[in-house]
Simulated scan of single mutants.
Amino acid sequence: SLAVRLIRAVNSYDPRKGYLEEYILSQLKREMVRIRSTQAVYGLTQAPANIGSTIVPLTIAAQRESYWETYIAV
């Protein structure tokens, strides 16, 4: 995704707004923040910002509770 953001940054660059290097760096930093976001990590488009602590992988759920299938069925 950083490579795609880099290509888009170069294509959308306007020399009247500053240096190319600064623009590219700011675009890549924005992409890094987006990559770390809940939406990118969990693939949830309407996820609240703090949902990361409430999501448990199924492998961990199975280790914690023998009836984990009933929890995800609800």
Rank of each mutant, 00 (worst) to 15 (best):
Y19H: 12
V33I: 13
L28Q: 01
T59C: 12
S26E: 15
S1T: 14
I24G: 04
R64Y: 14
R5H: 07
I7P: 02
R34W: 03
R34D: 00
I60L: 15
V41P: 00
N50G: 05
A62F: 09
L28H: 05
S12E: 02
I51Q: 00
Q46L: 01
L20C: 07
Y67N: 13
G52L: 02
Q27A: 06
E22W: 07
K17T: 04
L20D: 00
A40K: 09
I72D: 03
R36V: 03
T45I: 06
T59K: 15
E69K: 13
Y13W: 09
E21P: 00
A40L: 01
K29N: 07
A62H: 12
I51W: 06
G18W: 10
P57N: 04
A73V: 06
L28E: 02
S12T: 08
I72P: 00
A47I: 06
V10W: 04
G18S: 04
A61G: 08
Y19R: 14
D14H: 14
E21A: 15
L20F: 12
R16N: 12
A61Y: 08
A9H: 10
Y19E: 14
T38K: 12
I55M: 05
I51M: 02
P15V: 10
A62Q: 15
L58C: 09
Q27P: 02
A9I: 06
L6I: 12
M32L: 14
G18P: 10
R8F: 04
L25Q: 14
S53A: 12
T59M: 10
E31C: 11
S26A: 08
L6F: 12
S26W: 05
Q27L: 01
V33G: 05
V10K: 11
Q39L: 00
A61N: 07
I60D: 11
L44V: 03
Y23H: 15
Y23N: 01
Y67K: 15
